[in-house]
Simulated scan of single mutants.
Amino acid sequence: MVLTHFNKDGKAIMVDVTEKNETKRVALTKGKISMNKETYLKVKEGTIQKGDVLGVARVAGIMGAKKTSDLIPMCHPLFITGVEIEFNFFDDELTIEVATSVKTAGKTGVEMEALTATTTALLTIYDMCKAMDKTMVIKDVRLCKKSGGKSGDFINE
């Protein structure tokens, strides 16, 4: 396997995508945050004192996707054409899942943007609830699907 973020001397580089074709690209990522029962129910009911936790987390995730190249050194700045963030509740686990889809039409994929959006949304939930529950755990952040580009489709469900 060739690692494309290093030159022949082993020095870090930004991958040159000049000659790549533009294609429609989509990435789907997921991650979870588990918490105590009281916090979980208050988030689900929308009664956390700081406000609309999931609404703020959604906006934070979208902003995270847009700022990925500012955070991850070798990521290209991308024109993102769409970001969708959904929240799924798992009552038996006291867990909220963040599912993110990021789209673009370009020369490089949006996996890092989707992962950044998911983790930013999760961190925002943590930030808004930490006064109630410092034992929350962020886990299982992963790329679930990607499509487009030379490497084609990838599924990890």
Results as ranks from 00 to 15, higher is better:
1 M>I: 08
2 V>F: 15
3 L>C: 13
5 H>M: 14
8 K>E: 15
9 D>V: 00
11 K>L: 02
14 M>V: 15
16 D>K: 06
17 V>E: 05
19 E>K: 14
21 N>I: 00
23 T>E: 05
23 T>W: 06
24 K>S: 13
25 R>A: 06
26 V>E: 15
28 L>E: 15
28 L>C: 11
32 K>N: 10
32 K>S: 10
35 M>T: 06
35 M>D: 05
37 K>Y: 00
37 K>N: 15
38 E>R: 03
38 E>N: 14
39 T>I: 05
39 T>M: 13
42 K>N: 13
44 K>E: 03
45 E>I: 06
45 E>V: 03
48 I>M: 13
49 Q>N: 08
50 K>S: 14
50 K>R: 02
51 G>D: 10
53 V>F: 00
53 V>K: 00
53 V>R: 01
55 G>N: 05
57 A>I: 05
58 R>C: 07
59 V>K: 11
62 I>H: 04
62 I>G: 08
63 M>K: 12
64 G>A: 12
64 G>P: 12
64 G>M: 09
67 K>M: 14
69 S>R: 08
70 D>K: 04
70 D>G: 00
71 L>A: 10
72 I>V: 08
75 C>K: 02
75 C>I: 08
76 H>Y: 08
77 P>R: 07
80 I>E: 03
81 T>R: 08
83 V>Y: 02
84 E>R: 02
85 I>Y: 09
85 I>K: 11
89 F>W: 11
89 F>Q: 01
92 D>I: 05
92 D>V: 07
93 E>I: 07
94 L>N: 15
100 T>A: 15
101 S>Y: 06
103 K>P: 00
103 K>H: 13
105 A>Q: 11
107 K>Y: 13
108 T>W: 09
109 G>H: 02
110 V>M: 05
111 E>W: 10
111 E>H: 07
112 M>P: 12
113 E>P: 12
113 E>Y: 05
117 A>H: 09
120 T>P: 03
122 L>P: 02
124 T>H: 04
125 I>E: 01
125 I>M: 03
125 I>A: 01
126 Y>D: 07
127 D>F: 06
127 D>Y: 03
128 M>L: 14
129 C>N: 07
129 C>M: 02
130 K>W: 06
131 A>V: 13
131 A>P: 03
132 M>N: 14
135 T>F: 01
138 I>M: 11
140 D>M: 10
142 R>C: 06
142 R>P: 06
142 R>V: 08
143 L>V: 07
146 K>S: 03
148 G>F: 02
152 G>H: 13
154 F>Y: 15
155 I>E: 15
157 E>W: 11
